[in-house]
Design a protein around this nucleic acid. Structure first.
Length: 305
DNA sequence: GCCACCGGTGGC
DNA sequence: GCCACCGGTGGC
């Protein structure tokens, strides 16, 4: 085959970590747009944090966050960093009809061209995730916020819309309710079509914990209370191994892709004190942390604008 | 008391 | 398997 169909949207994020210089990133690209004109979009650092490189002072939490926005040129396939989140959203909104190219980047980098080296590469130092194309820009005054969850979560990320009043909305249902309660926005022209809670998909397959198998009727079914003593046998599940991670090189990928380093577990797995599961629904995952130990790549700080 | 974050499931 | 939704709670 010739050139792998390019990908559309990419997003990268830096992971902040207090004591570890773990800068992974998330980059998103959209394979669905692979119809010839591929382009990738990357996420840029939120204006609030002009200094993405540095780690926030105290947050003990430390979650990965979007560190940069990038988009792939449909012609040369190189990644171009997008200067702002707004610009990124603008590009992403029409990425299908209007593929991105280095030409467009001239808007903020007059000198740039396909002859220049890419701004960023997939080198394993960051997490990459595939963003969805054509997501409407948020209404004026509103902000669409993407929060990356920690590794091992049940979901990769969450999207929130921040209303002009500061109210955070986390689903279409909430948006609709909010709009109904604040007709002024509706009269301003705000509609549901301007919202999308689609989240990007991490390239690293194991970043998100697989959903625990629906009840496996191994030992009778939901036997409330009457759990068999013998029941739990962690063997039933085969953890993925490095091999899995490698296959990420995936389709349409130029350049090798390495899985993230498994050095610091951003994973927090705190056992929810009160909630004890009826029947050990998920022995495995909680016990053994299967981290992929990839060759830790040399710290490469890519995007830092 | 609030809310950022996470888990988990119902429904497709 | 994926996604939308939302309950619960730990930590402030």
């Amino acid at each position: 085959m010739e050139k792998p169909p390019p990908e559309p949207v990419v997003l990268s994020s830096d992971e902040e970590d207090n004591n570890a210089q773990d800068d992974r990133q998330i980059i998103l690209y959209d394979p669905t747009v692979a119809n010839g004109s591929g382009q990738l979009v990357a996420v840029a650092v939120p204006e609030s944090d002009p200094n993405p490189i540095r780690v926030r002072a105290l947050p003990p939490k430390v979650l990965p966050s979007v560190g940069a926005f990038t988009v792939q040129c449909a012609e040369c396939y190189k990644w171009r960093l997008i200067p702002t989140k707004e610009k990124y959203e603008e590009i992403r909104e029409h990425i299908l009809e209007k593929p991105f190219s280095c030409e467009i980047a001239k808007e903020w980098r007059p000198e740039i061209s396909c002859d220049d080296p890419g701004d960023i590469e997939q080198d394993g130092s960051r997490l990459w995730a595939i963003d969805k194309p054509n997501i409407a820009q948020p209404p004026p005054g509103w902000e669409r916020e993407l929060r990356i969850r920690g590794e091992g979560s049940s979901k990769f990320a969450d999207v929130y819309y921040i209303a002009p009043t500061g109210k955070r909305l986390r689903s279409m249902v909430e948006v609709q309710k909010y709009l109904l309660e604040h007709p002024e926005y509706i009269s301003q022209g705000v509609t549901l079509s301007q919202f999308s809670f689609q989240i990007p998909k991490p390239l690293q397959e194991n970043y998100v914990r697989k959903r625990t198998a629906r009840l496996t009727p191994l030992f009778g079914d939901s036997n409330l209370g009457t759990s068999r003593p013998t029941a739990v046998s962690p063997i039933s599940w085969a953890p993925p191994d490095d091999a899995t991670a490698l296959q990420l090189g995936g389709p349409g990928f130029s350049g090798s892709y390495t899985s993230f380093d498994g050095t610091t577990p951003p994973v927090k797995k705190k056992a929810r004190s009160s909630t004890q599961k009826p029947c050990n629904s998920d022995p495995l995952h909680k016990q053994h942390r299967f981290k992929i130990k990839g060759p830790r790549l040399p710290p490469h700080d890519v995007c830092d604008f």
